[in-house]
């Protein structure tokens, strides 16, 4: 569905952030993109959704292909109309709009009034807490509820591909669990393809089919969830369950080199 090959992204015409990144998101799957801070995860999502432009960035080479069509450097509004919707990092709800209005804005590009209404009911069915408070300002919701609203708002656009940028950020562990279950449910029931960016590898592995690890603007490793979970490097650096229980030290050169490859 989405094929990125050798994409390079430059900010301010100077700073090269993605250095030839390639990845593939197959239809109706959940693909996770994992990596440390500054690895280029969010940049990858913004390159897909076109939001790079508003931050003075551009895809300088390589290709982004969505359902057989080039979407390099298209305007974000066009990309939304093509069926890609990004849920930005840190929830970013419109705080001085009510919950209901937030959902309206999410469906801004919709033309079919009947489907719009049906989907709003659907969103409220997924997130009953939102229905209770539909006429309240969304700025007063808790972090978890705002994340639900952000995802619900994305659902209103009926996207084919949903880009989720760290939905677990700053949210209580129990709620994170709930939100990820809902993401899985949206994927299976609405057939929405999902590209998920996460720092929390454990929770991402619990729902994804396929995972990529990004490091310094390139893909360092990829595989199915099972393959990734059983890889010893991933275990040690992402899941924290590797064998090396003793304290790491620079004397242990081998471990140091391995670590250097990752971070």
């Amino acid at each position: 569905m989405l094929i990125i090959s050798n994409a390079e992204v430059i900010y301010n015409r100077v700073i090269l952030v993605l250095k030839g990144l390639s990845l593939h998101v197959p239809e109706s799957k959940i693909v996770a993109l994992l990596g440390a801070n500054g690895a280029g995860k969010s940049t990858t999502l913004k390159a897909i959704s076109g939001l790079l432009k508003s931050e003075d960035g551009e895809v300088s080479s390589g290709s982004l292909e969505f359902m057989g069509e080039q979407i390099n450097n298209m305007d974000p509004e066009e990309i939304v109309r093509k069926g890609i919707f990004q849920v930005m990092e840190g929830r970013r709800v419109f705080e001085d709009l009510t919950i209901d209005e937030n959902l309206d804005v999410g469906g801004h590009t919709r033309k079919d009034a009947a489907g719009f209404k049906r989907d709003k009911d659907l969103v409220y069915d997924y997130f009953p807490r939102l229905r209770e408070r539909r006429n309240q300002l969304s700025g007063f919701l808790s972090g978890g509820e705002q994340q639900m609203l952000a995802i619900g708002r994305a659902l209103m656009a009926r996207p084919k591909l949903m880009l989720l940028d760290e939905p677990s950020l700053g949210i209580a562990p129990l709620l994170v669990q709930e939100i990820f279950e809902l993401i899985k449910m949206i994927n299976t029931e609405e057939k929405t393809t999902i590209l998920l960016v996460e720092q929390n590898a454990n929770i991402a592995f619990s729902i994804c089919d396929h995972a990529y690890i990004i490091e310094g603007g390139r893909i360092a490793m990829s595989g199915t969830t099972e393959q990734m979970k059983s890889n010893s490097d991933v275990k040690e650096f992402y899941l924290g369950t590797g064998e090396g229980k003793e304290k790491k030290s620079y004397r242990d050169l081998k471990g140091y080199k391995r670590r250097k490859r990752w971070l």
Partner: peptide, 23 residues
């Protein structure tokens, strides 16, 4: 109105409005 709400959304955050497909 749809446009009116979209305008308020734009006032709230331009970047997020862009990500909603608002021009």
């Amino acid at each position: 109105s749809k446009t009116g709400i979209a305008m308020r959304a734009t006032a709230s955050s331009q970047q997020v409005a862009l990500s909603m497909g608002i021009s």
